[in-house]
Nucleic acid binder design. Sequence first.
DNA 1: TGTTAGCACTCTACCACGATGAGTGCTAAT
DNA 2: ATTAGCACTCATCGTGGTAGAGTGCTAACA
Lengths: 348, 348
Amino acid sequence: MELDERNKRVLQAVIDSYIASGSPIGSSVLVRRYDFGVSSATLRNIMAELEELGYLTHPHTSAGRIPTDFGYRYYIDSLISVENDGDDIEDHLREAPRLQGDDLHELMEEASRFLAALSHCAGVVVAPSEPETQYKHIEFVRLRGRQALIIFVTTTGIVQNKLVDLDDSIRQQDLNRFSSYLNEELAGRTLAEVRRRLIEKMEEEKLLFTKLMDETYRASQEVHERESEMVYIGGASQMLESPEFASVEKMKALLKAFEDKYKLLRLLDRSVAARGIKVFIGTENPFFEMQECSLVVGNYKAAENVVGTLGVIGPTRMHYKQVIQVVDYTSKLLSKLLEERFQRGIEP
Amino acid sequence: MELDERNKRVLQAVIDSYIASGSPIGSSVLVRRYDFGVSSATLRNIMAELEELGYLTHPHTSAGRIPTDFGYRYYIDSLISVENDGDDIEDHLREAPRLQGDDLHELMEEASRFLAALSHCAGVVVAPSEPETQYKHIEFVRLRGRQALIIFVTTTGIVQNKLVDLDDSIRQQDLNRFSSYLNEELAGRTLAEVRRRLIEKMEEEKLLFTKLMDETYRASQEVHERESEMVYIGGASQMLESPEFASVEKMKALLKAFEDKYKLLRLLDRSVAARGIKVFIGTENPFFEMQECSLVVGNYKAAENVVGTLGVIGPTRMHYKQVIQVVDYTSKLLSKLLEERFQRGIEP
DNA sequence: TGTTAGCACTCTACCACGATGAGTGCTAAT
DNA sequence: ATTAGCACTCATCGTGGTAGAGTGCTAACA
């Protein structure tokens, strides 16, 4: 059943107004603020119809209407047009502070705060995740005594180091040979492949460097673990400003959810597959603590591969249009920065 | 003016009860729960006296007494004895999960969560701060093309790397000579000294490696910046459990304060000078947002030097005795772990 | 002089009550 | 199909009244 043009306009007006004001929208408000050319009674009939169809609801009999999750879904899919009059956000973006952290860690934190500041919600950035991250370079460095440093570089510019004990008999030249061997063998593979390959090698050739190989394997595993754990949350307190979280219980639930970064990670990772911006509304959201929140998620990439997720978590009543634009912009910005960083830093 | 023995006991009883229950303590409660051998009327007189002296107050005429900050101060300085019957905490500690992160970053996060879990407040750990951190080792590694990696290791086990462009003419052998030169020159100095020395060197000998020297200088500076920014907060939502933060305003204030890590840093750094555990109560606290909080701070060390601060932030009404023990224990634990890590990892 | 019993007083928390007003749903007229 | 009008509902807010906890003070007592 398709909505007719007028009903669409009314639905949009209700949701727009509700997003702006935060309180339920009654028929009189619509008459006052919009020009539908009909009376409040007609609007009441239309709204009753929209409620029947599941787009709207009202908290109690004598209150105005608020959108359901289903209503928001329709609003986002069919009613807002991000591209055609997307000029309002551009101004904000132009005067926004630029991201400039030169450390990856710093850059991620900055990006999460950037998202938060522009969206007035919490900003989340997940560091590049493993499946798409590629091995770039390995290097072994002898330190004093028996110590050596394994330096592991990925295409996303992460440098992982690990200290290991080594036999005195192994000299820097040996290490150099070993590293160029590995570099040739592993070039261009993803980390998962690298790990598989290392295990194969270890079984094939039970040679001199077993221990070193083993440690290398471990280092590559640690890159994986460290990366996939890294979730940066910025501006969580922004969210507490919205009246929907004005109750102590809800605040606590929200805060707890933010502390459990692992859950957030899984939540965000669900959207890695898809390109473009995705929106999860309220109950579409798999975690109970987040049932009153919406999620706007996008990806960023570096070196041609999709490598990470970023997004905004806010109340279901958020300014979707603006937030979608912000997430889109930030994902492009971050992609560009990583690309540059990558070019400048590691590629010959 | 010194309190007589009975008044001390009453003060202690009031504070103990208040810490346990969270609601103001009336004379009848004291009669019921303690055996002072006097009537409630006498206790009322005593409590009035204690109020006169500034140790207690009451929120309104017909409410029981609660401690003032001054009262807490006296309580901590004179009434609780951490050492003599400190057996209650030991059991908890024994069955507590051990810290085992092998990455410094991970270890700090774990420690902050550890503090939070045991104290039921927020746990804070500041990464090793610069003045005491010493330079340990430097290494230059040629990568492909014009790229090279500067690896900078401090005594606290932090490894900082920086990618630089280098002239093709500089070969790995040159780099090795340069690094052993620097290693000799800079051994055992603090980072501040290292930076000073590098500048001197650059002016003295305008030689081949000016650019490399310059980049090295920058790397050492980055170690400083990165370190001093690192504040780990664990279990912030624990604090929201206590009824004193049950108002939305207070929660927000608290959360904002936690987000501004830099302020926290300055707060905690005030106590770096002193050894042992320090307690800051309510208004003794320099930041307005934290006026209703107390702070229990301690230091941890590695390699014989005091290098970092850690502590617990909680409501003024916290279980001081237990928290002091937890902070003490954790600081020792972290010191030991860092010491081990240091021995194992870097020292020959 | 210190302690105690008793009493008047104070203040909060809680509940019930009613007024207000925004907003709906329905019906009958247009 | 639209509209005016009306009865009805429900949250919100201020009021007043009550119960209970706790105090301070006074007068009696050891």
